[in-house]
C-alpha cells in the first residue's frame, strides 16, 4: 500500500516539476545580461535553489532577476548553462536505494552532453565549468570533468600542458625525478 502511494507521489512530482518549469525566472550574468530560465531548470543550480527558497517563489518571479556575481558567469557562459539545465531539468532523480546508481560515475557522457560540452573556445569552456561550480550544478561540473579527463587520456605531460595552457612550475630536475618514479606506466603501454 505504501508502495502505491510513493508511485502516485512520483507522478505528481513529475507534473509539478513540468508545471513549475513553465514559470520563468530571470538570471543576470556578471556582465549584466538578463536571461529567462524555467524555474525547475534553474533550480538544478543549488545556489539558485537556495535563493528561490529563501526569497519565496513569488518574489523571484515578480521582482528583480537573480544576480550571479561571479566573473565566470559571463553572458556566453550563462547562455550555455541555461541551455544545459533546460535540456536536463526532467532527468529522473538519482535513486539512492539502488546500488547500481553508483555506476553512473563511470558511465560515458551521453551523445547530447558530448556535443554540448565540446566547445572550441577554451575560455568559454572553462567559464562554463567555473560558473557551474559557482552555481553548484553538480551534473554539469561532472560533464565538464569527464570531458577534460577524456581529452587528457593517454597524453603526455607536455601535451596536457599545451592543451590546457598550464604553466610548468617544476624544475627540470624535479620533473625528471617524478618521471623516473612513474616510469613503470610506460612499460606495457
Amino acid at each position: 500500500m505504501a508502495d502505491n502511494a510513493d508511485h502516485i507521489d512520483g507522478d505528481d512530482n513529475e507534473d509539478v516539476r513540468a508545471q513549475q518549469n513553465l514559470i520563468k525566472i530571470k538570471l543576470k550574468s556578471s556582465e549584466g545580461g538578463i536571461y529567462e530560465c524555467g524555474l525547475t531548470a534553474a533550480k538544478m543550480s543549488d545556489l539558485v535553489k537556495n535563493m528561490v527558497e529563501s526569497l519565496g517563489t513569488d518574489a523571484v518571479v515578480t521582482t528583480e532577476p537573480i544576480i550571479l556575481g561571479n566573473e565566470a558567469v559571463t553572458d556566453a557562459a550563462l547562455k550555455k548553462i541555461i541551455e544545459w539545465v533546460e535540456f536536463h531539468w526532467d532527468d529522473p532523480p538519482v535513486d539512492h536505494d539502488f546500488e547500481d546508481e553508483k555506476d553512473r560515475r563511470n558511465e560515458e557522457l551521453s551523445h547530447w552532453d558530448k556535443q554540448f560540452i565540446d566547445v572550441d573556445d577554451q575560455a568559454l569552456l572553462f567559464d562554463v565549468i567555473a560558473a557551474a561550480n559557482y552555481m553548484d550544478i553538480k551534473g554539469l561540473v561532472e560533464v565538464g570533468a569527464k570531458h577534460i579527463c577524456s581529452k587528457i587520456r593517454g597524453k603526455s605531460c607536455q601535451e596536457v600542458r599545451e592543451m590546457l595552457k598550464i604553466t610548468n612550475d617544476f624544475t627540470a630536475e624535479e620533473e625528471d625525478a617524478i618521471h623516473k618514479e612513474n616510469a613503470w606506466i610506460y612499460a606495457k603501454d
Binding site: 598550464i166 612550475d169 624535479e174
Partner: peptide, 8 residues
C-alpha cells in the same frame, strides 16, 4: 601518474 608532473 602520467600527469603528476604537469604542475605542482
Amino acid at each position: 601518474f602520467r600527469c603528476e608532473c604537469v604542475s605542482k
